Simulated assay, not measured.
Amino acid sequence: MVPRRSTPLVRFFGGVMARAMRRSFHAVRLARPGWPELPPGRPVIVCLNHPSWWDPAFLIVLATTQYAGRPGYGPIDAAMLRRYPFLGRIGLFGIEPGTVSGATAFLRTGLAILRDPDAMLWITAEGSFTDPRVRPVRLRPGVAHLVRRVPEAVVVPLALEYPFWDERTPEALARFGAPLDAAVFTGLEAATINDHLTIALQDTMDALAADAVSRDPARFLRLLDGRVGVGGLYDLWRRGRAWLAGRPFHAGHGAPEP
């Protein structure tokens, strides 16, 4: 049941998605304190919101940047996997959303993946595109059922947002919440576990929203630099003016970041 994941293809695709994000965003940023400390020898379930088409690209950039030693996987609509079968080679597995067979396939495949103590399973737990400002946050129940069956796992909430700040392209922002030990949910009903996971993710999303509203780059680690400035003749004219004035040229609209 575990996808036949190709590590070289994952690395290649991670590079492709990093270049795509550089072209489309002003910067890719991770809110401080940054990367969570994950205990070795325990599988990880990353539970995140789902605001945008860009989420899978962001996830593979995060995974190949920091967690290259942990094989990563994630569910995808089975129709998309049939259309793009190469996605199975980067760790994605197909499910039929909103069906009993889809829920069964998600649990069966998720359990098979998490038998590997190094595995990371990245799950867009809202199940469909949802604006990050929508409250209350609502998670599909499958994640809680999976957590209930894998007490040795570590669960990490992850919030994503794509706001515009001062430049013509948006920012890609992420924030990890505090890791949760799945063992603390032993004996609880899935609905109760879902409530705990929802609170953890919503708190992480609220913290990222506060970071985004601040528009303060110092609250983030900058993972990738993207495009700055307008480009074309306008930036050429601005560059010439800066040269004539004897001052450094800064293409961005806002103040230069340290």
Rank of each mutant, 00 (worst) to 15 (best):
V213P: 01
G94M: 04
A190M: 11
L38E: 01
I199P: 00
A218M: 01
Y162R: 05
M120S: 04
P256N: 06
M205N: 11
E152P: 01
A153R: 04
W243T: 09
V230Y: 05
R149L: 12
F25A: 14
V46C: 10
A255Q: 13
S6P: 10
P33M: 06
D235Y: 10
G72A: 15
V230G: 06
E189I: 02
L236N: 06
R140L: 15
G252R: 01
E257T: 04
R32W: 05
L30M: 14
L180M: 12
R19Y: 14
L188R: 13
G69C: 07
F25Y: 14
R5Q: 13
L173A: 07
V156E: 02
G102E: 06
Y73S: 07
P163Y: 02
G15E: 15
P170L: 09
G41I: 14
V44Q: 09
V28L: 13
P136E: 05
M21W: 01
M17H: 00
L244S: 11
G98I: 08
R4G: 15
Y162P: 01
L180A: 10
G91A: 04
P36V: 12
I90P: 05
A182R: 02
V228D: 00
A112L: 06
L244R: 10
V156I: 04
G91P: 08
A190T: 08
A68N: 03
P8N: 12
L208Q: 04
V154G: 06
F106Q: 05
G229W: 00
L30N: 12
T109K: 08
V134Y: 00
F13M: 15
W54V: 09
G187T: 06
P132K: 09
P217L: 02
P43S: 14
D118R: 11
A20Y: 15
G14M: 10
T130E: 08
A57N: 10
G102T: 08
H145G: 10
P151Y: 03
I199K: 12
F12N: 14
H253K: 01
W54P: 04
H26W: 04
L223A: 11
G127M: 03
F25Q: 00
E189P: 05
V184N: 02
R168D: 04
P85M: 03
F176V: 00
G177H: 06
R140M: 15
R140A: 15
G74H: 03
G142A: 11
P136I: 05
W35E: 13
